Computed example of a mutant assay.
Amino acid sequence: MRVLITNISPLRDAALYEELLRYVPAERQEKIARCGKQEDRRRSLGAGLLLEYGLRSLGCSLLPLVPGTETVHLVRGAYGKPELSGGTGVHFNLSHAGDYAAAVFDDGAVGIDVERARRVNVNVMQRQFTAAENAYLRSKPDAFLRLWTRKESYCKAVGEGLHLPLSSFDVLEDQVAGREASDTETVGREADAGDFYLYTEAFAKDYVLSFCTGHPITGCPVQNVDLRKLFDGIS
């Protein structure tokens, strides 16, 4: 497992922005161009750079003809989750918020979410949590970001996104038990494969990151990288 996080503030430098843009594929460049705000373009580029950097460390690339790598392509899973073509065995997920982008890589299903502290409507948000989680939040209101990022990372790991009600599972513990599929749900979902495990870190002031994977997490695998140096010495 590898988890990367980077501060995307240096991308405010127009020259650096243009220089690094060539390290993401045309599809990502088009996605970036569709972003209405410059800060959203920087976040999307930052996430794309982490994806390409992480893939190269695993012998893959989204760009053609990169020496020592297998060219792969992005495809969409059943619920729209981005995946890699070609049966590489590499799984990934991306997230960004504020001045940060993050990426996680593993050999099985993974999800990641990074969030920046913000004002929320507690009365609305409490419907997204279980009774136990709401009781926990009443005793520790500052734990909202911790629970929210864990919820989001789990949804992304199991590949269901908004199709999975956030109040249908509990993230107070670091282990989330596998669920049984109902008669109306798709059989064989990643969520049915077994338990998932969570890790959460407050890595900067007002920022929290959580990721989720199908195996126990040991140590602190989060690596903070300088995007200005990601591709040093690489043509």
Rank of each mutant, 00 (worst) to 15 (best):
A33E: 09
D40T: 13
G59R: 09
G54K: 07
G54A: 04
G98K: 01
L63T: 05
L58P: 08
L62H: 04
R34K: 15
L49H: 00
T69R: 13
R56V: 08
G87F: 10
L94I: 13
D99V: 08
G77A: 13
E52M: 04
G87Q: 05
L74D: 05
L49F: 02
L58C: 13
L51G: 11
P82Q: 05
G48P: 06
R56H: 02
E39W: 14
S61V: 15
S44W: 03
E70R: 15
V66Y: 02
E83T: 06
K31P: 09
L62M: 12
T71S: 14
G48L: 01
A47W: 00
H96R: 05
A26N: 12
L84F: 05
K81I: 06
G46H: 07
E70K: 13
V90M: 15
G77F: 00
G89F: 07
V75I: 13
G80E: 06
L45C: 06
L65N: 15
G86C: 06
G80W: 11
P67W: 05
H91E: 09
L63P: 11
R42K: 07
G80R: 08
P67D: 12
G98Q: 05
A97M: 00
C60Q: 15
K31Y: 12
R28P: 02
A78Y: 14
G77Y: 10
E30P: 01
R43G: 03
G59S: 11
N93T: 07
T69S: 14
H73D: 03
L94H: 01
K31T: 06
V66K: 08
T71Q: 15
P64W: 12
T71V: 07
G48T: 00
S44K: 04
Q29L: 00
E39G: 06
L94Q: 00
G80M: 10
G46R: 03
